[in-house]
Design a protein around this nucleic acid. Structure first.
Length: 362
DNA sequence: GACTCGTGGTA
DNA sequence: TTACCAAGAGT
């Protein structure tokens, strides 16, 4: 650990810091649906959903998901199609595929009980250093640090740490600090308090230092540099991709959809058949017709451009031209699946393709 | 260590 | 509008 951090850490009254932080948390904590009990399964589900995702976004998904899959066993027994549907729109879909896989592993290897040791729980798919600490501390009251973006921001300010929190190895600095700072008596409350403080008071921009229960312990506050911390390097711009998608129907009103590959982007989700095209969209419709014929053997008649949809990912942007059209009678459609409008509702689509469907109705 | 992997909200 | 953000993990 860096000398300056070590110095600031040991000049702090850690006992008072813990006490002030936890007292504030017990008074001010939000009523969140995953705080109603300490069911390790529900804690687990909430922590996976909350990865890179806002609390307000997660709440309705968490309520619906835990109603549909109330127990670890219920989730383990569910079809992946239904599990993905319950995650539809939440993003980062590998999270729920890993969760589903890990829950099955808990059934087969741990008798359906979520393991309570760092070694065992870390072996589960989708459980990284943060989620390990979060589940162990919140569900089992084990004094393991749970270092997320909130915790790094709060502690960077408290201890005046100028390391770049965007760099993976920086997380370990905070983890080592937290092993010393975490409350051994109330690790659950301590970890949640740090995250709650980051979410409510010690926010990324314009932190509410005058409302902060631990400002007297905060080096950044005393030095007036709270707005300059934490240091976080910028990420590069997403790559632009031009695409075309076809909403194909036949004379009986069936739709023809495609299931995506089991790995990579939007894995195992459903989509309307689509391809990347040249940036010059003069011949785009022709490119799409040729793709549909080459890839699926379709004989389709497409209408003029219906509209465009933009799908913004973290690292790329799809600019999708939407075409609607008829699949001619007797045409083949190889790897496409023929479904009724009602059947289609059971499958999980990325948000962009939900929009494509909506657009095709107009 | 850099890149992949979603989405909606906000200043 | 652009840029960044939000309880990260896998490859």
């Amino acid at each position: 650990m860096l000398d300056s951090i070590e110095k600031n850490l040991h000049s702090m009254n850690i006992d008072e810091f813990r006490k002030d932080l936890i007292s504030w948390y017990l008074l001010e904590k939000r009523d969140l649906p995953w705080r109603l009990d300490q069911d390790p399964y529900k804690i687990w589900v909430s922590e996976i959903m909350l990865q890179q995702t806002r609390v307000d976004t997660v709440i309705p998904y968490f309520l619906a998901f835990t109603e549909k899959f109330p127990t670890l066993e219920a989730l383990a027994d569910a079809d992946e199609e239904d599990v993905l549907k319950a995650w539809e729109g939440l993003g980062y879909y590998s999270r729920v595929r890993n969760l589903h896989s890990a829950v099955k592993e808990v059934m087969s290897s741990y008798g359906g009980i979520v393991p309570d040791t760092p070694e065992e729980i870390s072996k589960l798919k989708g459980v990284g250093p943060y989620t390990k600490g979060a589940i162990l501390s919140i569900a089992y009251n084990v004094p393991e640090p749970a270092v997320d973006g909130n915790v790094m921001r709060v502690m960077a300010r408290i201890l005046s740490i100028w390391e770049d929190i965007a760099k993976p190895k920086t997380r370990k600095i905070f983890e080592n600090i937290l092993y010393e700072v975490i409350s051994k008596e109330q690790p659950s409350e301590f970890n949640q308090a740090l995250m709650e403080l980051g979410a409510i008071i010690c926010t990324p921009t314009s932190p509410a230092c005058l409302m902060c229960p631990v400002r007297e312990h905060c080096h950044a506050f005393h030095e007036g540099v709270q707005s300059d911390l934490p240091v976080k390097s910028k990420k590069k711009k997403p790559k632009q991709v031009t695409m075309a998608a076809a909403v194909l129907k036949d004379e009986d009103g069936h739709y023809y959809i495609h299931k995506r590959n089991s790995s990579g982007l939007l894995a195992n989700l459903w989509e309307f058949p689509n391809c990347e095209t040249s940036i010059d969209i003069v011949s785009q419709k022709e490119q799409l017709v040729n793709f549909l014929n080459d890839e699926y053997g379709t004989d389709a008649e497409l209408e003029p451009l219906t509209g465009t949809i933009q799908h913004i990912f973290s690292h790329l942007v799809w600019n999708i031209s939407v075409y609607t059209g008829q699949l001619k009678p007797g045409s083949s459609y190889k790897d496409l699946v023929k479904v009724t409008e009602t059947e289609m509702q059971r499958y999980a689509f990325p948000v962009s393709h939900q929009k494509i469907y909506q657009m095709s109705l107009q």
